[in-house]
């Protein structure tokens, strides 16, 4: 990657989020994330990592400030405009959020609904091309044999990979991963992170992942952002980040160095 290719993908400008007029989620956050980056966000539970991620695709409405996705404001978008912006932002959840009673194929196809007029999706009129594409996506996460299985027949790790296939189907420019490995064992976590890396490298998607595990953060992140009490307290290249930074983020900077 050459430096000339650096273009902002997500810009947060003075973003503030206050819950119920009291609890502060984010305090005046300014942040720019460039195209093609793999960013990990670390911080304690309740520090505001989830709030940050959910503000970006507006699952949460911010109290103040503006967020631009590829130059377009998502905070001001309504209706169809908002849905089209969201189409460009995939999301991976801690609890996978699959429809457990539906088949794996239908869960993957759900990633595509924003590309279709409503009536076609209601009558399940997906094109043959898209069904093939869904199968391709499942192949990429090694779940081709589970295409007609019901989602609740799969293990946690497999379900998370179905969710990744759903994101592949959505074909977004950005992926937000909110604690994608928090409910998985270490080996499965690694596999899921490898899949995210594949999306980043092979498909050029910008990835922002909230992680609890410093180990995984170190292994996969190119850039690390530390959050404490709704503020960004660290932002830098992973390769240039000393261990002390993580201690500081997780221990509230109580150590003296």
């Amino acid at each position: 990657m050459t430096d000339s290719a650096i273009e902002p993908m997500i810009e947060l400008r003075n973003v503030k989020k206050v819950y119920d007029k009291k609890v502060v989620g984010l305090k005046k956050v300014n942040l720019t994330i460039n195209k093609g980056e793999f960013v990990v966000v670390v911080g304690l539970s309740g520090a505001g990592k989830s709030t940050l991620l959910r503000s970006i695709n507006r699952l949460i409405d911010v109290t103040e400030g503006d967020i631009l996705i590829d130059g377009k404001s998502i905070t001001k978008a309504r209706g169809k405009k908002l849905r089209l912006l969201r189409r460009n932002i995939g999301m991976i959840f801690q609890n996978f959020n699959l429809v457990k009673r539906s088949s794996v194929l239908r869960n993957v196809l759900a990633g595509r609904v924003a590309y279709y007029p409503t009536w076609k999706t209601i009558f399940n009129l997906f094109t043959k091309e898209d069904k093939e594409r869904a199968y391709e996506a499942l192949k990429q996460v090694d779940l081709a044999d589970k295409v007609y299985a019901r989602a609740d027949e799969l293990s946690g790790g497999q379900q998370q990979r179905v969710a990744i296939a759903r994101v592949l189907m959505q074909n977004p420019k950005v992926i937000l991963a909110d604690e994608p490995t928090a409910s998985l064992d270490p080996q499965t976590s690694l596999k899921v992170m490898e899949d995210l890396k594949m999306l980043n490298e092979k498909h050029g998607m910008t990835v922002i992942a909230n992680l609890h595990s410093v180990e995984l953060a170190r292994k996969f992140g190119q850039r690390v952002i530390g959050i404490r009490a709704g503020e960004i307290i660290y932002d830098g290249k992973m390769s240039a980040t000393p261990e002390s930074v993580f201690t500081k983020i997780y221990n509230g900077g109580e150590e003296d160095d």
Partner: peptide
């Protein structure tokens, strides 16, 4: 389970699509 509703919202689905893909499969039976 509200999870699938969230997932479909994030995908860019509209209300009817959310009902169709996230809600009805959970309650049809």
């Amino acid at each position: 389970d509200p999870g699938p509703i969230e997932a479909l919202t994030a995908v860019g689905a509209n209300k009817l699509q959310i009902i169709c893909f996230a809600i009805l499969p959970q309650v049809m039976t």
